[in-house]
């Protein structure tokens, strides 16, 4: 292992330990878990779409909501605690490059979100599997074909969610490298998540002819600069297994997420190199 990688991993390790000791992480983890577990109680409100789909949507929603909040707020807090408490001064006075520092922060925060996704996905998978057993038995008695739960689909979904949250973390770190305050970073990071969720609108618009070259350029830039976070929302198709998703499509989405992560981290390190601490 190279010295640079070792230093990066040490930053990640301490970042991870700092994050998992925060009450904020525990609070959101418990809240997310409660939402997933309570989905069984709310399944009567399935609006005719089937119980498993309702439970899945409820769980996916909780994972996305609390995961996004955690990605934005926790990442900004982990970065600014180092700057405001001046621990960054101590660390960056050592033979530690700024890119190692920022990438270390990223991996530490991403590992925390990995724990979050694994726990909630495990819980959601458990809930869905248990309910599936009951529904299968009932369907067999009624002579119907039940909707089945796919464990491998859940694994792929968890991986994609982790990638999506990784993209959000890199956006927040890039903003942090530029911003002066925690609040500004959280606001801009949150807006970026919302914009990423709505990015498909720009993608649709860019395909339609437009009279204004400036507007066309703006749309084109929007579709390149911001990731389409909606593309990760293929949980239903992956987990419920009725329709299924081609493996190439999953790989394409994953590669897109990885590409944005690398790009944002690259921009973030360039910006952070010029920052005066």
């Amino acid at each position: 292992m190279t010295p640079s990688l070792q230093r990066t991993l040490w930053i990640s390790r301490v970042t991870f330990l700092e994050a998992v000791r925060q009450r904020f992480f525990a609070f959101l983890m418990v809240l997310g878990a409660a939402m997933v577990l309570s989905s069984v109680s709310f399944r009567v409100f399935d609006f005719g779409h089937g119980e498993l789909k309702f439970i899945a949507d409820f769980g996916f929603g909780g994972m996305f909501l609390f995961g996004s909040v955690l990605s934005v707020v926790m990442t900004a807090q982990l970065f600014f605690s180092e700057i405001d408490n001046k621990t960054a001064l101590t660390l960056l006075a050592k033979p530690l490059s700024r890119s190692e520092f920022l990438i270390g922060k990223f991996f530490g925060a991403w590992a925390v979100l990995g724990v979050f996704v694994v726990v909630l996905s495990g819980l959601l998978g458990g809930v869905m599997w248990a309910r599936e057993q009951e529904l299968v038995a009932m369907a067999e008695q009624a002579g119907k074909v039940p909707v089945t739960f796919s464990a491998s689909g859940m694994f792929q979904f968890a991986l994609l969610q982790w990638l999506r949250l990784g993209v959000v973390i890199t956006i927040v770190l890039t903003v942090s490298a530029l911003a002066r305050t925690f609040l500004f970073t959280v606001v801009v990071g949150s807006l970026a998540v919302v914009a990423g969720q709505l990015q498909w609108i720009a993608q649709d618009a860019v395909l339609k002819p437009t009279g204004s070259a400036l507007y066309g350029a703006f749309l084109w830039l929007s579709t390149r600069l911001l990731p389409n976070l909606q593309q990760f929302n293929i949980g239903d198709a992956l987990v419920l297994g009725a329709t299924g998703v081609p493996g190439e499509a999953v790989v394409e989405v994953a590669l897109s997420g990885l590409a944005y992560m690398v790009a944002y981290l690259f921009i973030g390190t360039l910006v952070f190199r010029r920052r005066e601490i």
Binding site: W10, E18, T90, A93, P95, L96
Partner: peptide, 29 residues
């Protein structure tokens, strides 16, 4: 910087680490 040691004014360190863990962390960095 590998041949320089620095103690900033009013230093703050991660409270959850022990003193030995902090010094080990800084030694590795």
């Amino acid at each position: 910087r590998s041949r320089t040691g620095f103690l900033p004014e009013a230093p703050y360190f991660h409270k959850f680490l022990s003193g030995r863990e902090l010094v080990t962390y800084c030694a590795r960095l």
